[in-house]
Amino acid sequence: MTREALRLQEAQDRTAHWRRWGPYLAERQWGTVREDYSPYGTAWEFFPHDHARSRAYRWGEDGIAGITDNHGRLCLALALWNGRDPILKERLFGLTGSEGNHGEDVKEYYFYLDSTPTHSYMKYLYKYPQAEFPYGTLVAENRRRDRHAPEFELIDTGAFDEDRYFDVVVEYAKAAPDDILVRVTATNRGPEAAELQLLPTLWYRNTWTWDGSDRPTLSAGGDTGAHAVIAGAHASLGARWLYCEGAPELLFAENDTNGQRLFGLANARPYVKDSINDYVVAGRTDAVNPEQSG
């Protein structure tokens, strides 16, 4: 019997919860019926992509190459920045039904390369342009075309000309049901050196806003010498730790809606959902929590 067959048997017998963590994180939560509270069912307009970085979801989360537990409580995904985009690349972008000349359509290049049945090993590839991601061009050109014309794709914008892009591979390997190694490998396919910032992101789904449950916490958990540590505490998941190789800068914010940006309302707490975006992209050093907790 192979090791994966043994894991499957243990999962079936409920002696080891090998399927607790897996690729259950949505690629896109914005613009879906899951988050639609509009009076006329206009899900695409009620929660657009422009809101996603600033607005807390209720029923799920999203991310690139992400994993979460089987109840969607704690999530891990990869954010990226090429030094040119107006926002962090935290989730997949696409066109809504009214924007695409052939309807709803994702405008990214990503590939699920491998996964065992228990998700003891997973591999994912994302292709990230080094040029500024053409959000506006994709929307404008596809809106201009009628349904008889071909779709205007990301590669048609010139974003991948001269192979100026990164191949970003994310791998997950489980030593035990709750012991997971994450490896991120970025390869510059272009002819010259180019900037790429990698931001593995750990966060809890916001349940406290909706049901009054206790707010979980993430905080800097000390330095082992070889690793920086983030410690998490959750009422049902218990204590969890993320060990980061080397000495990366740790950034902390809250998974709360930025009401000031979206609705002109004062925020009840500082360091809201888009704070890390503002720190990295806009250079706002006061955007993240100096106490290193969130």
Rank of each mutant, 00 (worst) to 15 (best):
D179G: 07
D278A: 15
L78T: 10
G283E: 07
N255C: 10
E245P: 01
P248L: 09
W208I: 00
G60P: 06
D36V: 06
E132M: 11
L95K: 06
F111L: 09
A79C: 12
R240A: 15
Y121W: 14
A65N: 10
G232H: 04
P129F: 07
R147Q: 14
V182Y: 01
T257I: 02
N70V: 02
Y172I: 06
L80C: 04
V139H: 03
R34F: 11
H17V: 06
T285C: 13
R19A: 04
D146F: 05
D223N: 12
T96Y: 14
K127W: 10
L76D: 10
D69E: 00
H227R: 13
D178F: 01
G31T: 06
C75K: 08
D50C: 04
H17K: 12
A226R: 14
A11M: 10
G294F: 01
G158L: 10
H51F: 14
D256E: 14
G31C: 09
L92N: 12
Y37E: 14
L138C: 10
G283R: 03
L251E: 02
Q12H: 15
K273T: 02
Q29S: 13
H227F: 15
I67F: 00
T15D: 07
H49Y: 15
L242E: 08
L202D: 02
A233E: 12
H49I: 08
N258G: 13
H234P: 00
A159Y: 04
D274L: 10
S236R: 03
L242F: 14
R28E: 15
L88F: 05
L92K: 09
V168A: 06
S213T: 13
P117F: 11
L154E: 06
L262Y: 07
D62H: 03
G222R: 06
R53W: 13
N70P: 06
N255W: 08
P117N: 12
E35R: 02
Y128R: 08
L218A: 05
W208M: 07
A26F: 11
P200S: 06
R58S: 08
L198I: 10
H71Y: 11
P270C: 07
Y126V: 10
F93E: 04
W30I: 01
G225N: 02
E192R: 15
K273L: 13
P177N: 05
T285Q: 15
T285D: 15
L250Y: 09
W30S: 05
A56E: 12
E35D: 07
P48G: 08
G246V: 02
G136S: 08
M122W: 06
E192P: 04
Y24N: 07
T2S: 15
R19H: 09
R34I: 09
A193R: 11
G136N: 11
W44Y: 12
G31Y: 00
E35P: 00
Q197T: 14
P150D: 09
N289G: 01
